[in-house]
Simulated assay, not measured.
Amino acid sequence: MTEQIATLGQLLDAAGTTWRAFDIGRHITKLDKKQFLAIEETKIPYPYPLAGHAWLAIQFWDVKASKEPYVWFLKFPLDEQSRLVSASRDHFANMVIEALGTEITGENAEGKLDNNPYVFTPNANKLAAFNAQVKCLLKQSASQYYEYAQLYFSGTLGFENWQSVAVQGIADFAMRLDNDKNLTNLQSAWPQLPVEVLQPLSAMLEHVTIPPAFAEQLLAYGLNAIEQKDEIALVAALRSISKASAQGLTAQLVDAVLNSEMNTHSDVLLTIAGRCFSTLEDPARLHVFMDCCAHHTDIEQLFVSIFTDLVAIPTIRPHLLGLLRLENRSETLARAIGRLFS
Rank of each mutant, 00 (worst) to 15 (best):
T102Q: 10
S86M: 09
A149L: 11
A142D: 01
V119Y: 03
W72A: 07
P122F: 01
T105N: 05
Y118I: 01
F60I: 04
A128S: 06
N115W: 10
K75F: 05
A51S: 15
Q81E: 15
D90Q: 13
N125G: 00
T105M: 10
R89A: 02
N116V: 02
D114P: 06
E107P: 02
P77C: 08
D79Q: 13
A99L: 12
L74Y: 05
A149Q: 00
Q133I: 12
E103T: 10
E147P: 04
N108G: 09
P77D: 04
K67D: 02
E80A: 14
V119F: 08
A129R: 00
A124H: 06
P122A: 02
L78Y: 07
F76E: 00
L56K: 06
K64M: 10
W61H: 13
N123H: 07
A149T: 03
W72F: 14
Q81F: 07
N115V: 08
V96S: 08
V96K: 03
N108P: 01
A51G: 08
D114F: 15
F76K: 02
A124D: 07
F73V: 04
V63Y: 10
E103A: 13
L74E: 02
K75R: 15
K75D: 06
L100M: 14
Q140I: 06
S143M: 07
L113P: 14
L113Y: 05
L84E: 01
E68H: 09
Y148V: 04
L127N: 00
E103M: 08
L78C: 07
K126P: 00
R83F: 07
Y70K: 13
E107A: 13
V119K: 11
A51T: 08
R89S: 03
S66Y: 12
F130I: 03
Y146A: 06
Y118N: 07
K75E: 02
Y148K: 13
Y148G: 03
E68C: 11
S86Q: 13
A57E: 01
V63R: 14
W55D: 01
E110C: 11
D114Q: 14
N125F: 00
Y145Q: 07
L127T: 00
E68N: 11
L100Q: 12
A149I: 02
Q81G: 10
L56D: 00
A129D: 00
A65Q: 15
S86F: 03
N123I: 03
G52A: 06
L127A: 04
Y118H: 14
A54I: 05
K112N: 03
K126N: 00
L113M: 15
L74G: 01
N108K: 15
P49L: 04
E98D: 15
A51M: 12
K139N: 12
N123S: 04
V85R: 06
S86N: 10
A132T: 05
G111E: 09
I58M: 11
I58S: 07
S66Q: 12
K112V: 06
